[in-house]
Design a protein around this nucleic acid. Structure first.
Lengths: 205, 205
DNA sequence: TTGTCAAGACGATACGTCTCGCTTCAGCGT
DNA sequence: ACGCTGAAGCGAGACGTATCGTCTTGACAA
């Protein structure tokens, strides 16, 4: 037996792929999900809007969620390049970041696709893993690094598990966004930071 | 014009409704979502499994999500009856409750329908509101009452916004469950309680 | 008599696959 | 250098299947 270069039966030649079609598909998907929501987002509609054959979509993406994922997440981002600000004041830095997160979550243009992708992870664990690995976890690791720095600066109790502490910060924001129970505001972000930071404050001697 | 009792064009006579069919439909929906997931859950499959005409489902429910919702949430629960334990030790009580929540979220039987309903709220805001109002908010209000009692007992800083403090408790659990980043354990619940409770501890002087 | 019920026919979509020519591009011989 | 040629992606859309939500029928119960 020879070591054929095609372990999988299907192996489209990526070098001959049309970048023009790829972009048209991604743009069409984003447009449609913004206009009519994820429910009205169909492969056929994307193909029609993009001026593209359906097969071109099925050839390169396993699902419409995967299309939307690629449309939302630019490929060339270096996970290690994500860095939280470090002015030396952990409270101020966290408020800056969480306020920006609040603004993103309130951005109408990002809302529909983000909600759609999040929802799809319930039915599509593979998508969930990709989303976590490529988007979520790199950001959480940036929190871990920033909190470690704060620990070394004596602003955070060295015994606290920063991986859990970070979830005290992002968990509440995510919860409000997901459940739409109460509005997401800068004031809310500030209060969350204050409460969480008091929880991991250095112990008194 | 007469004040007809039917503001909506469609007004099925609820008094003549078949309870037998209703139960069969709800049971079938729960069975199917457990067996094959929400993706394979179709109105036709529910009707077939329940031995019921499709029209009987369409007559009484607006969507399959509404069917699943009613199947999961028994009607006759009094929101005010939900009460957190109060042994006088707020830390112990919260750990008891959050550990139970962890167990619920890890329960395979509840996992599929709960994830499906949560996901559907992205496309169906009406369902989201119903879920929040009937299930989520009553539980959150129980947290509010328990935390208020802790404030009066001097175990929690009286200036803390307990509505936000509660989100420091449930937000992280919900976040881990939703993103599947790390396992949901009792130890995790305990650490979250400890951190959050330190954040709202009474000021020293 | 009236309205729900089970059963299923019906047209409308969207699915995912397949088949058409058309275009592009790498490899090759001349 | 030049052009032939086969392979692969491309736009377009036909095809059969599945599910949708509506509609019709006859049985049955209040």
């Amino acid at each position: 037996m020879t070591d054929v270069p095609t372990p999988t039966p299907k192996a489209p030649d990526a070098s001959r792929r049309s970048e023009r079609s790829r972009r048209a598909i991604l743009d069409a998907a984003l447009e449609l999900v913004g206009e009519s929501g994820f429910a009205k987002l169909t492969i056929e509609a994307i193909a029609a809007r993009a001026g593209v054959g359906k097969q071109t979509i099925y050839r390169w993406w396993p699902s419409k969620a995967a299309v939307l994922f690629e449309a939302c997440v630019p490929e060339g981002i270096d996970p290690a390049s994500i860095e939280l600000p470090d002015t030396g004041d952990i409270a101020a830095d966290l408020k800056t970041v969480l306020r920006a997160t609040v603004d993103d979550l309130n951005d109408a243009r990002l809302d529909a696709p983000t909600r759609a992708l999040t929802a799809e992870t319930a039915n599509d664990p593979e998508l969930g893993r990709a989303l976590t690995e490529k988007v979520l976890e790199p950001q959480l690791q940036a929190y871990v690094r920033r909190l470690r720095a704060a620990q070394e600066a004596g602003q955070v109790d060295p015994d606290t598990d920063v991986r859990i502490a970070l979830e005290l910060l992002v968990g509440p924001l995510f919860h409000r966004w997901q459940t739409r129970t109460l509005p997401l505001t800068h004031a809310y972000a500030d209060t969350v930071v204050d409460l969480a930071l008091r929880g991991m404050a250095p112990r008194l001697p």
